[in-house]
């Protein structure tokens, strides 16, 4: 009896407070796992240095974050979506269909994508063409399209070490995969001359498809988890090469050795100068309708892109972010709440 009485009391208390629960007083963010560490660093500093509550940050991937962002307007929806790629047309349309029309796009910096292998293994000096020839399902040898059967890096390019081909690439749910395909595989496809051959045989769309189709014989392995999984896989198969974000590599330089691309060592300097070819912008999207409703939302966005945080000497750059050379205009965008067209 006592149990039931207690339970009933608890229920009524909860029901009462549920109706009384007001709008939340902290910013809610969700999205890209690449942006997550930057976002948590800023949130931590924001909570420490202002009177606002520390924002709550969820991970889950760029696409998941943007989908939740587009669910609608109101305190039950998130205020900011982190994304490691620009929002797609279809996503903007979905947002608009749910009433999320005014979106502020904030590009706060760039992130490099690096190839790294076990620290005590061979050194690699790769080019996009090498990676394409090693990983593509079909490549071009002496003008003819053949199935890729290369098992050794030296087979792809005699200058590369005599090591088995085994690459851990990000799975398709990651924003990183898109950049990897665009900046490495398609580039390599063009550089190696394979694209021309494909285009001669197929339509343009199919040629692109043929370029990005990776081999499925176990030489190229999709990793759907995070970079920590890739790191663990390299730990268990020392011949493997993994695709990482620059900041992740910089935190694990004791166990990883980075490969150069076109002879350039990836670093925040070489990426911001444009010498290192594989990088992508990082974004977060702010729901304008929530500014003024959720306390601290605009302040958080402004704090995020301020010189002290996202500038070249700020804590984000120390973590591995390549700061945006046009940060001043980004700050202006946030200050004026300029929405996407």
């Amino acid at each position: 009896m006592k149990f039931l009485g207690l339970g009933a009391t608890a229920l009524s208390v909860i029901a009462l407070t549920a109706t009384a629960a007001s709008a939340r007083d902290q910013v809610q963010v969700a999205g890209s796992s690449t942006v997550l560490p930057y976002s948590t660093i800023v949130a931590e500093l924001f909570g420490e240095n202002t009177d606002f509550a520390t924002p709550v940050i969820e991970s889950g991937g760029s696409s998941t974050g943007l989908r939740r962002f587009c669910e609608g307007v109101g305190p039950n929806t998130i205020d900011i979506a982190n994304s490691s790629r620009a929002m797609r047309e279809t996503e903007v349309a979905e947002c608009a269909a749910n009433g999320v029309t005014d979106i502020i796009e904030v590009r706060f910096g760039y992130d490099g994508i690096v190839f790294a292998s076990a620290a005590d293994g061979n050194e690699f000096a790769l080019t996009p063409a090498d990676v394409f020839n090693a990983l593509a399902a079909r490549r071009v040898v002496d003008g003819a399209v053949v199935d890729n059967t290369a098992t050794n890096w030296a087979e792809v390019n005699p200058d590369l070490p005599d090591q088995e081909i085994l690459v851990f690439v990000p799975g398709t749910r990651h924003g990183t995969r898109e950049v990897f395909e665009e900046k490495v595989i398609i580039q390599g496809c063009a550089d190696s001359g394979a694209k021309e051959v494909f285009e001669a045989e197929l339509s343009e769309e199919d040629a692109k498809e043929a370029c990005v189709r990776l081999r499925t014989d176990g030489r190229s392995i999709d990793i759907d988890g995070d970079y920590t999984e890739t790191l663990a896989r390299i730990g268990s198969s020392p011949n493997g090469i993994g695709v990482f974000g620059l900041s992740f590599y910089e935190n694990n330089t004791d166990t990883l050795r980075v490969a150069t691309i076109n002879g350039v060592v990836p670093s925040t300097e070489t990426i911001s100068s444009g010498e290192y070819p594989v990088s992508r912008p990082l974004f977060f999207y702010v729901k304008k309708a929530h500014i003024g409703v959720i306390p601290g939302l605009k302040e958080f966005a402004e704090f995020f892109v301020s010189d002290a945080i996202a500038g070249p000497n700020g804590p984000l750059a120390a973590y591995g972010l390549v700061s945006d050379p046009e940060l001043a205009s980004v700050q202006q965008t946030v200050a004026d709440e300029v929405t996407m067209q």
Binding site: V13, I14, T17, Q26, Q28, A30, L36, S39, T40, A43, E44, G47, A53, T54, V56, I57, E58, S59, G60
Partner: peptide
């Protein structure tokens, strides 16, 4: 949304819930 980075301690129940 509970798999998140949360730094603020929740208040005492029942509001904290």
């Amino acid at each position: 949304g509970m798999v998140a980075f949360v730094r603020e301690f929740p208040a005492a129940p029942p509001e904290g819930l």
